Simulated scan of single mutants.
Amino acid sequence: MIVTHALTKRFGGLTAVDSVNLSVAEGERYGFLGPNGSGKTTLVRMLLGLVYATSGEIEILGRTVPRHLSDALPEVGALVEGPAAYNHLSGPRNLELLDASGRGGRRTRRARVEEALEQVGLAGIDRRPVKAYSLGMRQRLGLAAALLRKPRLLILDEPTNGLDPQGIKEIRELLIGLNREGTTVFLSSHLLFEVEQLCTHVGVVDRGKLVLQDELGAMRSPTGRVIVQTPDASAAVLLLDGQLERRDGDRLLIRHPDPARLNTWLVESGVRVAAIEPEFRSLEQVVLDATSSGADRFDGSKP
C-alpha cells in the first residue's frame, strides 16, 4: 500500500527525511512515531505529493508518486496538519463541496455526507459555520472528509488531536472497524498509548532516519520479569530471596525468565497464585530506546 525507497528530503542544508525505506502492507494499522521535528509530517506530506522529495522513490497503491498520484488519490483518504475547511460555511456544506470534486454522483451526495458525519460522531451537527466549531469538532470534520470516498488507504497526521478521552476512544474504534472492513490505516501520532491500543505495526523515525520498523508484538519483547498477583504476597516475598523488584499490595514484579516454572515453584511452596504473566516492554520503552533526545531541544543536550 505504501512503499518508499531511500526517500530523502532536504531543505537547504537541513536533511528532514534521510533515506527512509517505509513498508506498509495491505490490511495493516501502521503507527508512525518519533520526537517533534523528526520528519514525520514532512514524510506524510511527500506521500501525498504536497512536498516533493529531493531523492528516492514513493509508491502508493502501486502507483508512483508524484507522477501517478492522480490515479491513486481517489482511493486515498487523508488528514494532514489539521482539517482544512471554509470557515464561513457549515460542516455539511464543506463536505458537499468536497464530494462534488470527486467521482460520486450528485443524487447520492447527501447520503455520503450524512454517512461520513455519522461515522465520526457529527450526525446531529447543525448548520453553524465551521468557525464556531471547537478543535475537536474540526478534527472530526476532517476525518469525515477523509472518509467520504470510502478509501482503501487512510493517511492521517495526528487524527485525535483536540479530542477528549471519549472522542479518542470513538475514533480508535472507528479506525479499527474500518480496518476490519478492508481499509489500511497509516497514521502519525505522538500519543504512544493510543498507538499501542490501535496499531498492528509501528515505524519509529528519529532525526529523519527510520530507526525501527516492525510488528508491534515483536517490538514488545519480554523483559525477563514476571507479574504475579497473589493473596499470599508477604509469604511470596520471603521466598523470593532478592528476585522481587517491586511490590504493590498483592501484585509483585519478580525477576524470573519463565512464568510457568515460577508458578509451579510458588504453588509447590504453598503460595496461592491468582494471576501470573510475563512483563513486556511498553511501546514507550521501545521508542525511547530507539531515539535520541527530543529533536526540538536547544538546551545544549543535543549532540
Rank of each mutant, 00 (worst) to 15 (best):
V204K: 08
L98G: 13
G136P: 05
M219S: 03
A233I: 06
P35H: 10
L175Q: 08
A123Y: 00
L43W: 01
S55L: 08
S293H: 11
E75L: 11
E181C: 00
D241Y: 01
L73K: 15
A290V: 10
E28R: 00
Q243I: 10
L210D: 04
L198Y: 02
D71F: 09
A25D: 09
G77Y: 00
G136L: 12
L7R: 04
G162E: 06
A85S: 14
L192A: 05
R67D: 15
P231R: 09
I176E: 11
L216K: 13
G136Q: 10
G34S: 10
G224E: 04
A6W: 01
E158K: 13
T41K: 06
T160I: 15
E284P: 04
A218I: 10
L7H: 03
H201L: 01
G105K: 10
T183R: 02
E277F: 03
L187V: 07
R152W: 04
R220E: 09
C199Y: 01
V202W: 00
P83K: 02
G217K: 04
G56R: 14
N87W: 06
S55M: 09
K9C: 10
V204N: 06
G31F: 00
T41F: 04
Q213T: 13
R246T: 13
Y133S: 12
V17F: 02
Y52H: 15
H88C: 06
T54E: 14
T54W: 08
R255E: 15
E26D: 12
T184D: 00
E57I: 07
N21P: 02
E170V: 03
G208V: 11
L192C: 04
A144E: 06
P92N: 12
I227E: 10
